[in-house]
Write a protein that binds this DNA or RNA. Structure first.
Lengths: 219, 219
DNA sequence: GACTGTGAATAGTTTCACAGCC
DNA sequence: GGCTGTGAAACTATTCACAGTC
């Protein structure tokens, strides 16, 4: 391990949630918020929020709460959101096109700079404001566009190949929506989201409630 | 707690992954798999896989491995995938339309039976094979269509209202894609997926690698 | 008086390592 | 010999409760 004090994974996964709520609060002209209020809006306990923030340093004021502006800046800094991140979408199907046009990316400092697809009929068409490039040109184009994050929305069978190409081209982060597990070498960050699996998890907890009662869903 | 032996949350979240790989293996005519092989394909350790499956019962054979067909059936049964689940999509924007057409739902036993939107111009148009209904009719339509799961793809500001309506109409599970935390009463299952947050988490781990080295991304 | 920051206690999860079975 | 099932150990995360600060 290097010199960096490490922030627990579970905390890292919640920091963006805090950031989201803090930005909303800032938009509503709030200047300070207590852990109690902030936690309630995020859906965690006040103790957990304080513990999480304590991993970043002492950013609150006892008797008062947290300064909204200041916390937004600090969490953003810790998450590495200082500069714009460049995103490529690989696979211009339903989901890929939706993500390319999705406002929730651009509004948070992520810019879609390339869209790829293997279908020649799609090449050259616009998805949002980005023209589709053929997958065969991916290796070169990813480097040229200085892509930081590749979002994989191809069919499962091509996903690993696409990821390998992206990693080979210097992409350091992968967000995989293809319904298959892909692997990356150490040093590359990866997250996998399978929408079908989310529904299956819901179904598990729901059936519990249907039969018995008094079971809390999930966190 | 009721009579059911409880399966740890972390295990529940992995069962669908095992199921996915097992189905692939079945399609390739595999009859048995060892924990070693199965775990490698899922991207977990063999010990973890064995511990997870042990929560369901003793379904393997020592010296041999796990019977693929049998495990598929058992995991499916535990997840409650016996009968088709009925899904409604609320919000026919980019993401909502993409999800309504997404093959990964229907192929796994989830059927989109209704799509809602607040925009009168969209009402009556087809999204995939489902006509769009106006949001004002949601309360009645959800019950009539016997919807099990509501997928929320509205803007953040309408999400909580929509969730309240859905829960009021008897929907027992919510999958929320709106970039805001929504709350549900006990007994309702909920999962929240924020695509922008996934990118922020990736950015955190990526910057660590950029500056220092030897930091493993995320699980 | 109100609220943060944090050690200590508890709960949950993963890994280890090996006994037990085929 | 190969592989599962599982207690025990190690690790990670959450909750409690209160001393410390404004």
């Amino acid at each position: 391990m290097v010199g960096a004090r490490s922030i627990p994974q579970a905390t890292v996964a919640r920091l963006p949630l805090y950031l989201r709520v803090l930005r909303e609060a800032a938009a509503e002209r709030a200047t300070t918020l207590s852990s109690e209020v902030l936690a309630a809006r995020v859906g965690v306990t006040a103790a957990q929020l304080r513990k999480d923030l304590s991993h970043l340093g002492s950013y609150g004021t006892r008797g008062v709460g947290y300064d909204v502006e200041y916390l937004v800046r600090e969490i953003g800094r810790r998450l590495g959101l200082g500069e714009e991140r460049r995103v490529a979408i690989v696979g211009a199907g339903n989901l890929g096109q939706a993500l390319a046009r999705y406002g929730g990316f651009s509004s948070r400092g992520f810019r879609v700079v390339a869209v790829f697809d293997a279908d020649p009929a799609k090449v050259g068409t616009l998805v949002g404001s980005t023209p589709v490039t053929h997958s065969s040109e991916m290796a070169a184009a990813l480097g040229e566009a200085r892509v930081d994050i590749a979002v994989i929305t191809t069919p499962a069978q091509s996903a690993q190949r696409v990821v390998d190409t992206a990693v080979g081209a210097g992409v350091g982060s992968i967000l995989n929506f293809a319904p298959t597990t892909v692997t990356v070498p150490p040093g590359v960050a990866i997250r996998q989201v399978d929408l079908g699996i989310e529904l299956q998890i819901l179904t598990f907890y729901q059936q519990r409630v249907e039969s018995a009662s008094g079971v809390r869903p999930c966190p």
